[in-house]
Design a protein around this nucleic acid. Structure first.
Lengths: 341, 341
DNA sequence: CTGTTAGCGCGTTCAC
DNA sequence: GTGAACGCGCTAACAG
């Protein structure tokens, strides 16, 4: 019986003694790696409960060469959107728990953290956010013996798994929707200049998709990068409306502008959607939380984060080969688009 | 010499062989727990480099009963500000690295995650954000054998270490500043109702500090909770300005409102600071990133996060007793306050 | 002082 | 269902 002073945490051999079996039996009960008779299993489980046993993760990791931890590299750049980042992080952590994995948080600027956690076997795999077109970390990751999944689509994935929202398709969907409403001049208000300069893949691809769609549909297009503040938005709109083109619609790919967009358009004498239609590319909750919901192509942060974790786990457990996955866009109509008049 | 095919990662005994010493010597070279002659040390270090040795963290953790990982519990509530959360997270991760610790990310809603990671010894200590006045997790934490630090000040810390910004003092500082400018009617626009309802300690304390300061200084006060969106802000301002009191200043403790505050005040026919003075309680970068910088009592997220980690490490390494630490507020004048006219 | 020997920490898994 | 080797690094005790 349980007559021990739990002065120190119970170990597997404490449980074995308490249950009157060997430690290997206890281990097999926990892992299920071998069939154990129902009676024995119940005795062991009761002993574990009585001793409040829980295995030391370090011992387990040492013996099994598995940490059950995933590394997640998050960006801390001023030009990325904290809201979107948090959504991804939440999705990754939540999904990881589903696979009985925990998440170690690594920051972009902590150079060498990737090598560190992987060479010390602190993590079984990695998920990386905010990938650039020619990201210098990709060769590093490709050499590792641990699976890595990129959230983003670099030019050359080097055999790494990648998953991302189809930002180009999102732009195309938005342009097509606006074109069908009769708009023949559309402006793209995009990511901050910094994001474009470093070729963050979401920024690049949304812009390219926009330009291609406009060319195909013979729509006049303007595009302008914009920081997430009122001052820069004013400058951007200035540029958009000062041009010779008659702009009657906007595609906005910059979540931080949404709270101030309507007012700034009003300052230019344009009401939404009466004078100008607006489609945004943003997480669904942000798009609908506005005073009037925006017509939006939503960034499915949860789906992307989930897919990223699934892909790491696939490579880990099933030794699946690398894959590229793009998540299809879908447009939901809000109160910010109307037929051109 | 290094004539081994690095088919599998090097271990400490590989290094020992390569250097012609015993494994304990290698260990002491790494830990510095005992003096090693310069020559030996250099031989060992060279061997480590040649074999690209890095110790398995699980083996190290098993032997030393230290994981070198801190758990960080972050809130994912809709009513907390993602920007502030990210700042804390960044501060905690950055500071943790300073102590050679990594950070495991736990989410609030993952019930039992605290017990799980501590009973499995996955973490050496915990940092918890978003504490409520009578937080149900506090008794749980107090029973653990791992040190925990709360970011927030609960009613009864039960011997846990706590650190927070002095929100009450922040409100007092702001009210005093406004009173000195001659304002005799001040409105407090606070956290979302949800935060107040669950008594998030920052929300409660900022409000209480405001009310006390107004009473002391004999200033007329109104206070209203507010969600971070335009619609609710409109309602809140309605309430503030419809009352019988002559309100000439606002104290805003809700970061999410800042991008839309100026426009909404304009809609009420009030310009800042001509008709109404505004002080905000917000992270410094948010307050200064606005079109015109706000007069602000800044939330020093970096300082708080750093202090939290330092306090966990103190308790871990130095076995220091629990302490309560409040970080003093300081007001920086921006372009949103002026003498009453 | 400097280096070594030996045992430990705790699960996992293969051979019987 | 069990015994025992194993994974890998730490450190107390001991020897030169």
């Amino acid at each position: 019986m349980s007559n021990r002073k739990a002065s120190t945490a119970a170990t597997i051999s404490d449980v074995a003694k308490e249950a009157g079996v060997s430690t290997s039996t206890v281990s097999y009960v926990m892992s299920g790696n071998r069939p154990i008779s129902k009676e024995t299993r119940e005795i062991v489980e009761a002993a574990m409960r009585r001793l409040k046993y829980s295995p030391r993760s370090s011992a387990r990791a040492l013996a099994s060469s598995r940490s059950n931890v995933l590394g997640l590299v998050v960006p801390l750049r001023a030009d990325v959107n904290v809201g979107v980042v948090m959504q991804f992080v939440t999705a990754v952590v939540t999904t990881a728990r589903t696979f009985n994995q925990d998440v170690l948080l690594l920051t972009q600027d902590d150079a060498g953290s990737i090598e560190r956690v992987t060479s010390q076997s602190m993590v079984d795999g990695l998920v990386m956010m905010d990938i650039e077109a020619r990201d210098p970390r990709i060769p590093v990751l490709a050499k590792l013996d641990k699976p890595a999944v990129l959230i983003g689509m670099p030019d050359d994935p080097r055999g790494l798994s990648c998953v991302d929202f189809d930002f180009a398709g999102a732009s195309r969907t938005a342009v097509r929707h606006l074109a069908e409403l009769g708009h023949r001049g559309i402006a793209f208000i995009g990511s901050p200049p910094a994001s474009l300069r470093r070729h963050a893949t979401y920024a690049d691809r949304a812009l390219r998709g926009f330009e291609e769609a406009c060319r195909e549909l013979e729509v006049t297009d303007v595009s302008v990068a914009c920081e997430a503040n009122s001052k820069d938005l004013a400058r951007a709109l200035e540029k958009v409306f000062a041009g010779p083109e008659a702009i009657t619609a906007l595609l906005v790919h910059n979540e931080g502008l949404l709270p101030i967009l309507r007012e700034n358009l009003a300052a230019h004498g344009r009401s939404v959607p009466g004078d100008i239609s607006v489609v945004v590319i943003a997480p669904a909750d942000v798009a609908t939380a506005a005073f009037l919901p925006w017509t939006a192509v939503s960034i499915p942060a949860m789906d992307i984060g989930r897919a990223a974790v699934e892909m790491v786990m696939d490579r880990l457990s099933l030794a699946k080969p690398a894959e590229l996955r793009l998540i299809a866009p879908s447009l939901s109509e809000g109160a910010s688009t109307a037929a051109v008049r």
